[in-house]
Amino acid sequence: MTELDLDSADGRQEALRRMVTIRAFDQEAGNRFADGEIPGFVHLYIGEEAVGVGTCAALESDDYIASTHRGHGHCIAKGLDPKYMMAELYGKAEGYCNGKGGSMHIADVDAGMLGANGIVGAGPPMATGAALSIDYQDRDEVAVGFLGDGAVAQGQVHEAINLASTWDLPAIFVVENNHYGEGTPVEKQHNLDNLSDTAQAYDIPGVTVDGMDITAVAEAVAEARDRARAGDGPTMVEAQTYRYRGHYEGDEEPYRDDDEIERWKEQDPIESFKDRLIERGELTQEEFDDLESEIESTIDDAIEYAQAADYPEPSAAYEDMFVDQPPELQHFANVARTDGGANGGDHR
């Protein structure tokens, strides 16, 4: 087990730390986006922390995850460094993807993080593929595909689960049901009470758990992992959760009211886990406050790092299209203007 093992006191502390880090990271990312410092879109994970961290708590460090557009939490849960994540959100050369991916495409393949993904439902085929490599090479890992409730309606999700099930691949599909597919409530997108019921169609186990409870998520994923490693194929875990922020930052949220948000906050995944650790005598409120301050300064450092980091050179736009660069791109790179663009000059 990894340093996130919920069966150990240290593991529980680390899990709490990662949940708090996710929340602090995303709160600050939201603020900096609102200030205009972070370009593009950001989709925040606040409220859903127990799903990502609970899932990764049941994984080994070399297991794979394929993420969604709401991927910051998965990255931190998998152990990525907030500093390089923030640099990526800022579009800086030191970011995980050298600034080419941004919030929606953060990846660290070496750490088993196969990418956030801007296409709803694209993670499961990726996870099935990683599980295929694992199975083909008789390796010991598993691959997790995260998807949202909205993605359950996607055809490629069905195809990915069907393939994984048919081939008994070591994959786990974690449905983060945050109750809204963008701005449309889940009940208007599916004619099902539990999305995990779809698992029956593939003859694989499907369970629905409280996604605000890190332990419940970790237990379900651990069972799925054991099953995958035993060669019994994939499992679907639906985690019922809630996003406190809009679909994206700037979303005016006409589809829900404050009362609903407040009701979910009563089950807050961080508060409830913290309370449990205090009850067990493993944590005091003071220690938790210290942890929060420490993490706030970690995130402040990440912001400072990202702000100070350099943008990529304009010529980097022409790099990394291929492993073996074709002459076409080399030519465009050669004629790139230093102010950032090959258009208008000599081309081809």
Partner: peptide
């Protein structure tokens, strides 16, 4: 999609 994921992970 699976072939893409598999190619990214060693086969």
């Amino acid at each position: 999609g699976a072939a893409t994921g598999a190619a990214a992970t060693g086969t």
